[in-house]
Design a protein around this nucleic acid. Structure first.
Lengths: 147, 147
DNA sequence: TTAATACCTAAAGTTGACTTTAGGTCAAGA
DNA sequence: TCTTGACCTAAAGTCAACTTTAGGTATTAA
Protein backbone atom coordinates (compact mmCIF):
# COMPACT_ATOMS: atom_id res chain seq x y z
CA UNK A 1 0.00 0.00 0.00
CA UNK A 2 1.25 3.47 -0.92
CA UNK A 3 0.47 7.02 0.22
CA UNK A 4 -0.37 9.73 -2.29
CA UNK A 5 3.14 11.13 -1.97
CA UNK A 6 4.73 7.78 -2.79
CA UNK A 7 2.52 7.28 -5.84
CA UNK A 8 3.34 10.80 -6.96
CA UNK A 9 7.08 9.99 -6.75
CA UNK A 10 6.67 6.58 -8.39
CA UNK A 11 4.75 7.88 -11.40
CA UNK A 12 6.05 11.42 -11.62
CA UNK A 13 2.50 12.76 -11.33
CA UNK A 14 1.82 15.78 -9.06
CA UNK A 15 -0.07 15.10 -5.84
CA UNK A 16 -2.64 17.71 -6.85
CA UNK A 17 -3.31 15.75 -10.03
CA UNK A 18 -3.83 12.49 -8.13
CA UNK A 19 -6.32 14.21 -5.83
CA UNK A 20 -8.04 15.70 -8.86
CA UNK A 21 -8.32 12.25 -10.48
CA UNK A 22 -9.76 10.88 -7.27
CA UNK A 23 -12.26 13.71 -7.03
CA UNK A 24 -13.29 13.00 -10.64
CA UNK A 25 -14.00 9.39 -9.70
CA UNK A 26 -11.04 7.71 -11.41
CA UNK A 27 -10.28 5.47 -8.41
CA UNK A 28 -13.74 4.15 -7.47
CA UNK A 29 -12.54 1.60 -4.92
CA UNK A 30 -9.81 3.70 -3.32
CA UNK A 31 -9.48 2.95 0.39
CA UNK A 32 -8.77 5.41 3.15
CA UNK A 33 -7.48 4.95 6.67
CA UNK A 34 -8.52 7.81 8.93
CA UNK A 35 -9.05 10.10 5.98
CA UNK A 36 -5.76 9.31 4.25
CA UNK A 37 -5.77 7.70 0.80
CA UNK A 38 -4.16 4.24 0.51
CA UNK A 39 -3.20 3.26 -3.04
CA UNK A 40 -3.00 -0.49 -3.73
CA UNK A 41 -1.93 -2.52 -6.77
CA UNK A 42 -5.37 -1.97 -8.30
CA UNK A 43 -4.97 1.80 -8.15
CA UNK A 44 -1.46 1.61 -9.61
CA UNK A 45 -2.77 -0.38 -12.58
CA UNK A 46 -5.65 2.11 -12.83
CA UNK A 47 -3.12 4.94 -12.99
CA UNK A 48 -1.19 3.13 -15.74
CA UNK A 49 -4.43 2.78 -17.68
CA UNK A 50 -5.31 6.43 -17.04
CA UNK A 51 -1.96 7.57 -18.45
CA UNK A 52 -2.44 5.27 -21.42
CA UNK A 53 -6.00 6.38 -22.16
CA UNK A 54 -5.14 10.04 -21.67
CA UNK A 55 -2.29 9.76 -24.15
CA UNK A 56 -4.64 8.02 -26.56
CA UNK A 57 -6.75 11.18 -26.50
CA UNK A 58 -9.52 10.13 -24.14
CA UNK A 59 -11.17 12.64 -21.79
CA UNK A 60 -11.30 12.26 -18.02
CA UNK A 61 -15.08 11.77 -17.96
CA UNK A 62 -14.79 8.84 -20.38
CA UNK A 63 -11.97 7.31 -18.37
CA UNK A 64 -14.26 7.59 -15.35
CA UNK A 65 -16.92 5.66 -17.27
CA UNK A 66 -14.37 2.90 -17.86
CA UNK A 67 -13.44 2.78 -14.19
CA UNK A 68 -17.12 2.48 -13.27
CA UNK A 69 -17.47 -0.42 -15.71
CA UNK A 70 -14.50 -2.11 -14.02
CA UNK A 71 -16.20 -1.70 -10.67
CA UNK A 72 -19.38 -3.29 -12.03
CA UNK A 73 -17.68 -6.57 -12.86
CA UNK A 74 -18.01 -9.15 -15.61
CA UNK A 75 -21.26 -7.83 -17.11
CA UNK A 76 -19.28 -4.93 -18.67
CA UNK A 77 -16.48 -6.87 -20.40
CA UNK A 78 -18.14 -6.13 -23.75
CA UNK A 79 -18.20 -2.38 -23.22
CA UNK A 80 -14.62 -2.34 -22.00
CA UNK A 81 -13.43 -4.34 -25.01
CA UNK A 82 -15.29 -2.02 -27.36
CA UNK A 83 -13.71 1.00 -25.69
CA UNK A 84 -10.17 -0.37 -26.02
CA UNK A 85 -10.79 -1.32 -29.66
CA UNK A 86 -12.00 2.20 -30.39
CA UNK A 87 -8.96 3.74 -28.73
CA UNK A 88 -6.66 1.35 -30.55
CA UNK A 89 -8.10 2.53 -33.87
CA UNK A 90 -7.78 6.15 -32.74
CA UNK A 91 -4.12 5.71 -31.79
CA UNK A 92 -3.34 3.95 -35.06
CA UNK A 93 -4.85 6.91 -36.91
CA UNK A 94 -2.88 9.33 -34.75
CA UNK A 95 0.33 7.42 -35.49
CA UNK A 96 -0.30 7.78 -39.21
CA UNK A 97 -0.85 11.50 -38.85
CA UNK A 98 2.32 11.84 -36.80
CA UNK A 99 4.26 10.01 -39.52
CA UNK A 100 3.02 12.66 -41.94
CA UNK A 101 4.08 15.38 -39.50
CA UNK A 102 7.49 13.75 -39.28
CA UNK A 103 7.75 13.82 -43.07
CA UNK A 104 7.03 17.55 -43.04
CA UNK A 105 9.67 18.07 -40.34
CA UNK A 106 12.22 15.97 -42.24
CA UNK A 107 11.57 18.04 -45.33
CA UNK A 108 11.86 21.33 -43.44
CA UNK A 109 15.10 20.26 -41.76
CA UNK A 110 16.59 19.36 -45.13
CA UNK A 111 15.24 22.59 -46.62
CA UNK A 112 16.89 24.84 -44.05
CA UNK A 113 20.16 22.89 -44.11
CA UNK A 114 20.27 23.60 -47.83
CA UNK A 115 19.19 27.21 -47.35
CA UNK A 116 22.03 27.75 -44.90
CA UNK A 117 24.55 26.26 -47.31
CA UNK A 118 23.21 28.28 -50.25
CA UNK A 119 22.69 31.51 -48.31
CA UNK A 120 19.25 31.96 -49.87
CA UNK A 121 16.24 29.98 -51.10
CA UNK A 122 16.54 30.65 -54.86
CA UNK A 123 17.79 27.20 -55.86
CA UNK A 124 15.40 25.49 -53.42
CA UNK A 125 12.38 27.34 -54.80
CA UNK A 126 13.31 26.20 -58.30
CA UNK A 127 13.21 22.57 -57.11
CA UNK A 128 9.64 22.86 -55.75
CA UNK A 129 7.25 21.16 -55.97
CA UNK A 130 8.54 18.09 -57.86
CA UNK A 131 12.25 18.29 -58.59
CA UNK A 132 13.52 17.52 -55.11
CA UNK A 133 16.23 14.90 -54.57
CA UNK A 134 15.36 11.29 -53.81
CA UNK A 135 14.13 10.64 -50.31
CA UNK A 136 13.20 14.27 -49.77
CA UNK A 137 10.67 14.35 -52.60
CA UNK A 138 8.86 11.40 -51.03
CA UNK A 139 8.73 13.11 -47.62
CA UNK A 140 7.53 16.35 -49.25
CA UNK A 141 4.81 14.54 -51.19
CA UNK A 142 3.52 12.61 -48.19
CA UNK A 143 3.52 15.78 -46.10
CA UNK A 144 1.59 17.69 -48.77
CA UNK A 145 -0.88 15.07 -49.96
CA UNK A 146 -4.48 16.33 -49.79
CA UNK A 147 -5.03 20.08 -50.57
CA UNK B 1 -5.79 34.06 -54.27
CA UNK B 2 -8.42 32.68 -51.89
CA UNK B 3 -10.97 34.22 -49.54
CA UNK B 4 -11.17 33.10 -45.92
CA UNK B 5 -14.25 31.00 -46.75
CA UNK B 6 -12.44 29.14 -49.52
CA UNK B 7 -9.41 28.41 -47.32
CA UNK B 8 -11.75 27.20 -44.60
CA UNK B 9 -13.36 24.77 -47.09
CA UNK B 10 -10.02 23.68 -48.54
CA UNK B 11 -8.41 22.87 -45.19
CA UNK B 12 -11.47 21.98 -43.15
CA UNK B 13 -10.57 24.67 -40.60
CA UNK B 14 -13.34 26.94 -39.23
CA UNK B 15 -13.34 30.56 -40.41
CA UNK B 16 -13.23 31.70 -36.79
CA UNK B 17 -10.01 29.73 -36.33
CA UNK B 18 -8.39 31.31 -39.37
CA UNK B 19 -9.29 34.77 -38.07
CA UNK B 20 -7.93 33.80 -34.67
CA UNK B 21 -4.63 32.65 -36.23
CA UNK B 22 -4.42 35.93 -38.12
CA UNK B 23 -5.08 37.93 -34.98
CA UNK B 24 -2.33 35.96 -33.22
CA UNK B 25 0.10 36.97 -35.97
CA UNK B 26 0.44 33.63 -37.75
CA UNK B 27 0.13 35.19 -41.21
CA UNK B 28 2.49 38.19 -40.97
CA UNK B 29 2.38 39.12 -44.65
CA UNK B 30 -1.32 38.49 -45.24
CA UNK B 31 -2.75 40.93 -47.79
CA UNK B 32 -6.14 42.58 -47.72
CA UNK B 33 -8.18 44.28 -50.40
CA UNK B 34 -10.64 46.77 -48.95
CA UNK B 35 -10.52 45.06 -45.57
CA UNK B 36 -10.99 41.53 -46.88
CA UNK B 37 -8.26 38.94 -46.33
CA UNK B 38 -6.64 37.47 -49.46
CA UNK B 39 -4.80 34.19 -48.86
CA UNK B 40 -2.01 33.36 -51.34
CA UNK B 41 0.23 30.32 -51.82
CA UNK B 42 2.48 31.59 -49.02
CA UNK B 43 -0.42 31.59 -46.55
CA UNK B 44 -1.53 28.12 -47.64
CA UNK B 45 1.98 26.77 -47.00
CA UNK B 46 1.97 28.66 -43.68
CA UNK B 47 -1.29 26.94 -42.77
CA UNK B 48 0.18 23.53 -43.64
CA UNK B 49 3.13 24.32 -41.39
CA UNK B 50 0.80 25.55 -38.63
CA UNK B 51 -1.16 22.29 -38.71
CA UNK B 52 2.10 20.33 -38.66
CA UNK B 53 3.65 22.27 -35.80
CA UNK B 54 0.44 22.21 -33.80
CA UNK B 55 0.23 18.46 -34.16
CA UNK B 56 3.86 18.21 -33.10
CA UNK B 57 2.82 19.84 -29.82
CA UNK B 58 3.95 23.41 -30.41
CA UNK B 59 2.02 26.36 -28.97
CA UNK B 60 0.57 29.18 -31.05
CA UNK B 61 2.97 31.77 -29.64
CA UNK B 62 5.97 29.69 -30.71
CA UNK B 63 4.51 29.15 -34.16
CA UNK B 64 4.15 32.94 -34.34
CA UNK B 65 7.84 33.28 -33.52
CA UNK B 66 8.63 30.97 -36.43
CA UNK B 67 6.45 33.01 -38.80
CA UNK B 68 8.24 36.17 -37.69
CA UNK B 69 11.59 34.50 -38.43
CA UNK B 70 10.30 33.64 -41.90
CA UNK B 71 9.35 37.27 -42.45
CA UNK B 72 12.85 38.37 -41.40
CA UNK B 73 14.55 36.44 -44.20
CA UNK B 74 17.84 34.58 -44.55
CA UNK B 75 19.39 35.78 -41.29
CA UNK B 76 17.07 33.41 -39.37
CA UNK B 77 17.69 30.15 -41.28
CA UNK B 78 19.67 28.86 -38.29
CA UNK B 79 16.88 29.45 -35.80
CA UNK B 80 14.30 27.90 -38.08
CA UNK B 81 16.46 24.81 -38.63
CA UNK B 82 17.02 24.46 -34.89
CA UNK B 83 13.26 24.72 -34.28
CA UNK B 84 12.40 22.03 -36.80
CA UNK B 85 15.13 19.75 -35.41
CA UNK B 86 13.75 20.20 -31.91
CA UNK B 87 10.22 19.40 -33.06
CA UNK B 88 11.46 16.39 -35.01
CA UNK B 89 13.03 15.01 -31.84
CA UNK B 90 9.84 15.76 -29.91
CA UNK B 91 7.67 13.94 -32.44
CA UNK B 92 10.02 10.94 -32.50
CA UNK B 93 9.71 10.74 -28.72
CA UNK B 94 5.92 11.07 -28.95
CA UNK B 95 5.82 8.27 -31.52
CA UNK B 96 7.71 6.00 -29.15
CA UNK B 97 5.29 6.78 -26.35
CA UNK B 98 2.34 6.12 -28.62
CA UNK B 99 3.82 2.75 -29.53
CA UNK B 100 3.86 1.93 -25.83
CA UNK B 101 0.26 3.10 -25.55
CA UNK B 102 -0.63 0.86 -28.48
CA UNK B 103 1.01 -2.07 -26.67
CA UNK B 104 -1.17 -1.40 -23.63
CA UNK B 105 -4.27 -1.22 -25.84
CA UNK B 106 -3.33 -4.45 -27.66
CA UNK B 107 -2.90 -6.16 -24.32
CA UNK B 108 -6.21 -4.85 -22.98
CA UNK B 109 -8.07 -5.91 -26.13
CA UNK B 110 -6.66 -9.40 -25.85
CA UNK B 111 -7.41 -9.42 -22.11
CA UNK B 112 -11.09 -8.58 -22.53
CA UNK B 113 -11.52 -10.94 -25.46
CA UNK B 114 -10.28 -13.71 -23.16
CA UNK B 115 -12.38 -12.46 -20.24
CA UNK B 116 -15.50 -12.59 -22.42
CA UNK B 117 -14.71 -16.14 -23.51
CA UNK B 118 -13.92 -17.28 -19.96
CA UNK B 119 -16.78 -15.37 -18.32
CA UNK B 120 -14.45 -14.14 -15.59
CA UNK B 121 -10.84 -13.04 -14.99
CA UNK B 122 -9.66 -15.95 -12.80
CA UNK B 123 -7.52 -17.69 -15.40
CA UNK B 124 -6.21 -14.35 -16.72
CA UNK B 125 -5.15 -13.16 -13.27
CA UNK B 126 -3.20 -16.40 -12.82
CA UNK B 127 -1.24 -15.63 -16.00
CA UNK B 128 -0.14 -12.20 -14.76
CA UNK B 129 2.47 -10.79 -14.74
CA UNK B 130 4.76 -13.16 -16.67
CA UNK B 131 2.93 -16.23 -17.93
CA UNK B 132 1.08 -14.60 -20.81
CA UNK B 133 1.12 -16.18 -24.28
CA UNK B 134 3.71 -15.19 -26.87
CA UNK B 135 3.15 -11.84 -28.47
CA UNK B 136 0.91 -10.67 -25.66
CA UNK B 137 3.61 -10.98 -23.00
CA UNK B 138 5.86 -8.70 -25.06
CA UNK B 139 3.12 -6.08 -25.44
CA UNK B 140 2.36 -6.28 -21.70
CA UNK B 141 6.03 -5.92 -20.78
CA UNK B 142 6.62 -2.93 -23.04
CA UNK B 143 3.43 -1.28 -21.76
CA UNK B 144 4.49 -1.81 -18.15
CA UNK B 145 8.22 -1.07 -18.30
CA UNK B 146 9.26 1.56 -15.74
CA UNK B 147 7.33 1.44 -12.40
C1' DT C 1 6.79 22.62 23.30
C1' DT C 2 7.20 23.91 19.11
C1' DA C 3 8.17 23.33 14.54
C1' DA C 4 8.43 20.64 10.44
C1' DT C 5 6.27 17.33 7.44
C1' DA C 6 2.74 14.84 5.15
C1' DC C 7 -1.63 14.47 4.65
C1' DC C 8 -6.72 16.60 4.04
C1' DT C 9 -10.82 19.81 1.79
C1' DA C 10 -13.41 23.23 -0.86
C1' DA C 11 -13.19 26.74 -3.84
C1' DA C 12 -11.10 29.85 -6.79
C1' DG C 13 -7.72 30.68 -10.36
C1' DT C 14 -5.04 29.55 -14.60
C1' DT C 15 -3.98 28.31 -19.36
C1' DG C 16 -4.39 27.63 -24.23
C1' DA C 17 -7.07 27.43 -28.04
C1' DC C 18 -10.72 28.37 -29.66
C1' DT C 19 -15.93 29.88 -30.35
C1' DT C 20 -19.73 32.83 -29.84
C1' DT C 21 -21.98 37.12 -29.75
C1' DA C 22 -23.33 41.54 -31.12
C1' DG C 23 -23.00 44.74 -34.22
C1' DG C 24 -21.50 46.48 -38.82
C1' DT C 25 -20.06 46.87 -44.23
C1' DC C 26 -20.74 45.76 -48.93
C1' DA C 27 -22.25 43.61 -53.38
C1' DA C 28 -25.52 40.83 -55.95
C1' DG C 29 -30.11 39.02 -57.06
C1' DA C 30 -35.45 39.11 -56.83
C1' DT D 1 -35.86 48.25 -52.43
C1' DC D 2 -34.85 44.88 -49.68
C1' DT D 3 -32.80 40.96 -48.13
C1' DT D 4 -29.38 37.39 -48.48
C1' DG D 5 -24.70 35.96 -48.09
C1' DA D 6 -19.91 36.65 -47.35
C1' DC D 7 -17.00 39.27 -45.25
C1' DC D 8 -15.37 42.38 -40.99
C1' DT D 9 -14.27 43.70 -35.59
C1' DA D 10 -13.86 43.65 -30.55
C1' DA D 11 -14.99 41.51 -26.63
C1' DA D 12 -16.89 38.05 -23.94
C1' DG D 13 -17.60 33.18 -23.21
C1' DT D 14 -16.30 28.21 -23.09
C1' DC D 15 -13.87 23.99 -22.04
C1' DA D 16 -10.73 20.58 -20.14
C1' DA D 17 -7.37 19.66 -17.12
C1' DC D 18 -5.12 21.05 -13.88
C1' DT D 19 -2.96 24.15 -10.07
C1' DT D 20 -3.13 27.25 -6.36
C1' DT D 21 -4.86 29.06 -2.20
C1' DA D 22 -6.43 29.15 2.37
C1' DG D 23 -7.25 26.83 6.12
C1' DG D 24 -7.10 22.55 8.90
C1' DT D 25 -5.43 17.72 11.16
C1' DA D 26 -2.11 14.36 12.80
C1' DT D 27 2.47 12.52 13.61
C1' DT D 28 7.20 12.83 14.38
C1' DA D 29 11.98 15.12 15.64
C1' DA D 30 14.56 18.46 18.35
Amino acid sequence: MYTIGQVSELFGVPISTLRYYDKEGLFPGLERSSGIRRFGEQELEALRVIECLKRSGMEIKDIKQFMLWCARGSETYGQRLELFRRQKTAVEAELEKLEKVLDMLRFKCWYYEQAMEDGDEERLKSLLPDKLPEGIQEAYDRAHEGQ
